[in-house]
């Protein structure tokens, strides 16, 4: 089976500083992969490059065997939904307006909403449990509600690939777990999910596969337990990682 996303020698640098360096790998359909790494390792930058929202990166990324910068923006957005790092909303758009944006790649600038679009919006809001907030001004939402609204926008896009930059930010532990189970459900339905995450314990418990980034390089990838148990992970984070006999990970200062 050809992978959904094929990444070939992706690099990005600003003024001689390499933020991404020679990253080559692939992402299979229906996988759910966590991107982990210390602060500044390039997690966000990688997701921006893969979603073609970064400019000036080198290398190639193929989505469905076509280079992502050769797709038109709407065509790409129908196949790939990218959630940028969390940021508050400054304009008082209604929650439903925000979720509706997920249908823009299907509608262009003018075409009115069809019933198909309304269904996609409705089911995305139901899935993220924000239907009761649909008329609320997005600037008055809590961080968690807003993050779920953004995610509903991504779901409404109906794309098979989701690139989520720190989707758990702003959520309390209950909503984090709820979101993870939604993402796992989406992966079971065949969506491919690449998500970056800070919290190694959550990653250890919920990610199946992981990519480890260290100073812009992809130094280790594979099943999460193998990645966390690797020498590269200890080097990247500068800590000791041990797995106790009950399977839980313990993290100690190096």
């Amino acid at each position: 089976m050809t992978p959904l996303l094929q990444i070939v020698q992706v690099g990005y640098s600003i003024r001689d500083k390499n933020l991404l360096e020679d990253i080559s790998t692939s992402l299979g359909s229906g996988s759910m992969t966590a991107v982990i790494g210390p602060n500044g390792a390039g997690k966000s930058t990688l997701l921006k490059a893969l979603s073609a929202t970064l400019h000036g990166w080198t290398g190639k990324v193929f989505l469905e065997a076509k280079e992502i910068r050769r797709w038109t923006k709407p065509d790409l957005a129908r196949r790939l939904a990218y959630l940028p790092q969390f940021r508050p909303v400054t304009v008082p758009l209604a929650v439903e307006d925000l979720v509706t944006m997920g249908r823009f790649p299907h509608l262009g600038a003018w075409r009115p909403l069809r019933s198909l679009d309304r269904e996609a919006i409705q089911s995305a809001m139901e899935r993220m449990e924000i239907t009761h907030l649909r008329h609320r001004d997005a600037t008055t939402l809590s961080g968690g509600e807003l993050q779920r609204t953004y995610l509903a926008r991504c779901l409404a896009q109906g794309s098979s690939l989701l690139l989520l930059d720190e989707p758990l930010t702003g959520l309390d532990i209950g909503h984090q777990l709820a979101l993870l189970s939604i993402l796992e459900g989406l992966a079971r339905e065949g969506k491919t999910i690449l998500w970056s995450v800070h919290d190694l314990r959550l990653a250890a418990e919920h990610a199946r596969d992981a990519w480890l980034l260290d100073r812009g390089r992809l130094t280790c990838q594979g099943p999460i337990d193998e990645v966390l148990g690797s020498r590269e992970a200890e080097v990247a984070f500068g800590i000791r990682m041990n797995r106790s006999c009950d399977g839980a990970w313990r993290f100690g200062q190096g």
Binding site: K48, S51, A52, T53, T72, K73, P74, D75, L76, A77, R78, A81, Y82, L83, P84, R87, V89, T90, V91, L93, D97, L98, M101, G102, F104, P105, L107, A109, W110, Y150, R153, Q157
Partner: peptide
């Protein structure tokens, strides 16, 4: 005629770009 684009841009360029 570009009301939708304006709405998307008001969330930020990255959001706008990610909805095409």
């Amino acid at each position: 005629s570009i009301a939708r684009w304006l709405d998307a841009l008001s969330l930020g360029e990255d959001h706008a770009e990610s909805v095409g």
